[in-house]
Simulated assay, not measured.
Amino acid sequence: MTDFISIQTQDFSVAEQLQALEEDNVSDGATVIFTGRVRDKNEGQQVHSLTLEHYPGMTEKSLAAIIAQARQRWQINRVRVIHRIGQLSIGEQIVFVGVTSPHRGDAYAANEFIMDYLKIEAPFWKKESTNDGDKWLDAKQQDNQKAQSW
């Protein structure tokens, strides 16, 4: 089992992250990755950029706790979570979640669980810049409902 958590301003390479999950890993038959990017529209408004802030130290602990919960539910081995902070432009990558497991069902479920809980529990604050000005975003009701289904 290997966990990697990084909160960073710099972009990341999906190929490098995938390689880190799979390198010298002959125990796991499944690797599931998710990447999220800044969209150009949200709730019908044109988005110009997204600024992400966090609480250093607390954020990493929160992500580690989310991964620990996933480990209690599913048989998973390597987990990599990268979340960017700072001002991001349209199309830029925000988040990477990668999970390996001997079985695909566990890898899919754990990856989705980690991403769902990251959206509602991790101490990130998101501010969108739109045509109508800047606005701070709350967790969407659908994200909260999805997390409650776990």
Rank of each mutant, 00 (worst) to 15 (best):
A15Y: 00
A15S: 13
A15R: 10
A15F: 00
A15E: 15
A15C: 03
E16V: 00
E16H: 04
Q17Y: 06
Q17T: 06
L18S: 08
L18K: 08
L18C: 08
L18E: 15
Q19F: 09
A20V: 07
A20H: 09
A20K: 12
A20Q: 15
A20R: 15
A20L: 15
L21K: 00
L21R: 05
E22R: 03
E22S: 09
E23H: 09
E23I: 07
D24S: 13
D24M: 08
D24L: 10
D24P: 01
D24R: 12
N25D: 15
N25M: 10
N25P: 09
V26A: 15
V26E: 15
S27Y: 12
D28E: 14
D28G: 04
D28L: 05
D28R: 02
D28W: 03
D28M: 05
D28T: 03
G29N: 14
G29K: 08
A30E: 14
A30F: 02
T31M: 09
T31N: 05
T31I: 03
T31P: 02
T31A: 10
T31D: 05
V32K: 04
V32N: 03
V32D: 09
V32E: 12
V32M: 10
I33L: 10
F34L: 11
T35Q: 13
T35V: 11
T35S: 12
T35I: 12
G36R: 04
G36C: 05
G36L: 07
G36F: 05
G36Y: 11
G36W: 07
G36P: 00
G36V: 02
R37N: 14
R37I: 10
R37A: 12
R37W: 05
V38L: 06
V38T: 09
V38K: 04
R39F: 09
R39K: 11
R39L: 11
R39A: 06
D40N: 14
D40E: 15
D40S: 11
D40A: 07
D40V: 01
K41I: 06
K41Y: 14
K41Q: 15
N42R: 08
N42Y: 12
N42M: 12
N42D: 14
N42S: 14
E43P: 01
E43I: 01
E43Q: 14
E43M: 06
G44S: 08
G44Q: 06
Q45K: 14
Q45T: 02
Q46H: 11
Q46F: 05
V47A: 02
V47D: 13
V47C: 02
V47T: 04
H48C: 03
H48A: 07
S49I: 00
S49R: 06
S49A: 13
S49F: 04
L50C: 01
L50M: 15
L50T: 01
L50I: 03
T51A: 12
T51K: 13
T51I: 00
T51P: 00
L52S: 08
L52V: 05
L52F: 06
L52Q: 11
L52R: 01
E53G: 01
E53H: 04
H54F: 07
Y55K: 01
P56S: 00
P56G: 05
P56H: 08
P56V: 01
P56I: 04
